[in-house]
Amino acid sequence: MLSVFLRRILSLLPTLLIGITLSFIIIHLAPGDPANRFLNPNQTPEMQSSIRERFGLDRSLPVQYGRWLKNVIFHLDFGYSFYSGKSSRAVIAVALKSTAILSFWALVFALIAGISLGILAALKQNRFIDYFCNNLMIFFLSIPGFWLGLMLIGIFSIQLSWLPGAHLQSLYHHQLGPGARFWDLAGHLILPVITLGLPLAATFFKYIRSNMIETLNSDYILAAKARGVNRSKILWKYALKNSLLPIISLLGIVIPALLSGAVIVEVLFALPGVGRTMVTAVYSRDYPVLMAAVTFGFIAVLLCNLLADICYRIVDPRIQHSPGEIS
């Protein structure tokens, strides 16, 4: 078992290497001299050459590539933010925290909503509630996240003033007691979590529903029914376990979607996360930060995949590694 995990982690390395290389290539394929991207037009040639030196742009491409690899792999160093002057690693590390909070709660929300409605719909297959849930989920899948967020903000924070529509915490957050702090954070999170979580809930719903229906109609469940095992036992012991397990592997696929969705939500609700940092960096052409964000996102997805895979193997040791899964 342990060797399987080790091999799994080892096979991650080439993927990582290719990813980092790819990001290097993208920067160098982009039009224009990379040095110019750090500058405003009224800098002197001396300043330009000092910048070239600092970022190693005066060396040959292979040397630059070697440096890039060394800095990224050993130091997670992407250079300094052109905009704020801070190390871009630090900028992203701070932002990563709020993205993690947001994504985590959105995932929890989506799992709870998607799974419970999915089970309900599967049990009442082809009844009104099933149709209703199905169509509701198509609605959630189709609604653009930013528009949903915009409408939620409009209704709940501007019109009704029930919930804050921006930021992760109030200005006076630090003066609050621990309990009040929690409620403050929770209040700020409700709308973003709903915005980010609903499409995800719909994905889980569809998956659980069809899985559940398939399991309920499978031979061994029918056999158990025929033997007279009682209904609730069939449901909880066999069917549910079998339809829930694959969710773990679905998580690996969902994570990139979650991070992508977080970009919009963070911008919309002015949350200080990776996505908003990225968009700001795009506006200000802050390219070390951009690189750091993309690479961190990439690594985060890989790690989540690895985690999902390991969990799945622990829960269900039968599965085999199949070629062509994310590794």
């Binding site: 993208i26 920067i27 990139p256 996102g297 070629p323 994310i326």
Partner: peptide, 22 residues
């Protein structure tokens, strides 16, 4: 397929943002 794995591991909007930024 390994390249496909790599490409799938980039959150799509991240990489699109990167290119647009550049």
């Amino acid at each position: 397929m390994r390249l496909v794995d790599v490409a799938l591991a980039f959150p799509r909007i991240f990489i699109v943002l990167l290119v647009i930024g550049l």
